[in-house]
Structures are given as C-alpha cells and as structure tokens.
C-alpha cells in the first residue's frame, strides 16, 4: 500500500504544498485528471476553511497533518487539525446555486465543492482534533 504523510503550518501559504501533495496522491493511485482536479479542489477548500475559520478567526494556531493511502479500490486522504470543532458534512447543499450572483450569500461553496469532488466525505472529532477524510474510488465511475 502506497502512503505518504505531510505536516504543514495552519496558514494559507500551505495551500499550494497540500495541492502538490494531493497531486502526488492521485498520480500514485492512477486517478484520471478530471477527478484528480476535483479531489485537489475538495481538499484545498476544506483546508482553507480550517485555516480561516478553525484557526485564524478562532484566535488559534497550529499545524495541519495530511496523509494519503492508496488502497486496492480507493484513494483515501486524511486531514487532521486542532482548530475549533467543525463538521462540514452537516453543511447543507447551498439552496441558492441557481440564483443570480447579486442575490447569493457568500459562503458554503467550498464545502459543496468538497462533497462534489469525492465519492465519500467523512468527518469525525477524535482526541480533540478534527479529522476530515476524502475518498475517491480508483476505478472511474463515470461521475
């Protein structure tokens, strides 16, 4: 099983390094380009939320740990942080996607994109840490 870990400071300058990390993961798992982009976007969106809302706005600081595991039929990416507890899977699909821009609230898009870019998106709070798991099936499912 192919696996890799990375720890980065919980700030926005880490976004790029984490995108590169996810690219290595999808390359290792043989995920096609379009789905690889969507998974990269998913992780990037959640990491940005962690940094902005979980750390900065909460007056906290800390690292973010990321790892990937290439399993037989899927790629799993795990993200751990010590920001304020936040469960993005409880965030409803924005009801305003068909609204004109000027009528839309700003927010909720990142979590929506994270859910759209994964086959499974799981959250748990364990040992005082947020744990977000992103799963993409290795066999293209046509979605």
């Amino acid at each position: 099983m192919d696996t890799e870990n990375l720890t980065v400071p919980g700030n926005l300058d880490s976004l790029k390094a984490v995108r590169e990390f996810v690219k290595r993961a999808t390359g290792s798992a043989g995920i096609d380009k379009q789905r690889a982009y969507k998974l990269t976007l998913a992780v990037d969106e959640i990491l940005a939320n962690i940094v902005i809302h979980g750390y900065d706005e909460a007056g906290r600081s800390g690292d973010v740990e990321i790892s990937y595991h290439v399993e037989e039929d899927r790629l799993r990416v795990d993200l751990y942080d010590c920001g304020i507890p936040y469960d993005p899977t409880q965030n409803d699909t924005p009801a305003h996607l068909d609204k004109q821009l000027e009528d839309r609230p700003i927010g909720g898009l990142g979590v929506y994109l994270a859910r759209q870019g994964t086959d499974d998106f799981i959250y748990e709070f364990v040992n005082d840490r947020n744990h977000n798991t992103f799963i993409v099936n290795r066999a293209a499912n046509g979605s």
């Binding site: 982009y37 976007l41 990037d44 969106e45 927010g107 898009l109 994109l113």
Partner: peptide
C-alpha cells in the same frame, strides 16, 4: 486552478 475564493 480556481477555488471558491475566486468565485466569491
């Protein structure tokens, strides 16, 4: 590449 930050 463009994330939701660009959309906002």
């Amino acid at each position: 590449y463009m994330s939701s930050a660009g959309l906002r």
